[in-house]
Amino acid sequence: MVFFKIVLLLLLIVCAVSAAFSKRLLASVIIFMAYSLIMSITWILLEAPDLAITEAAVGAGVSGILFLMTLKKIKRTGNEEKEEKDENR
């Protein structure tokens, strides 16, 4: 069990680093949703089931959707290639 917990924690750090430093916004949002899913599994391992349900419903569910809606609104109004250049800066 401890080994599984350590694997999950390392996965968390990998997800956080890749979400932070990935070039494309859409990729970092999706990695962030995976990050919050792993976090919800960690809550189960830490014996806090209430948090697992909330984090799953809220982390990947609602904030994930809001991030994608914002990206859609931005992509919708800004032209495609300018957005690409803008993200990399």
């Binding site: 089931p49 209430d50 697992a52 349900i53 909330t54 419903a57 569910g61 609602v62």
Partner: peptide
């Protein structure tokens, strides 16, 4: 059981 106002509300919201 585990859950409650916030978790249930978030799931219904989703």
């Amino acid at each position: 059981s585990p859950g409650g106002g916030f978790s249930g509300g978030a799931v219904v919201g989703a």
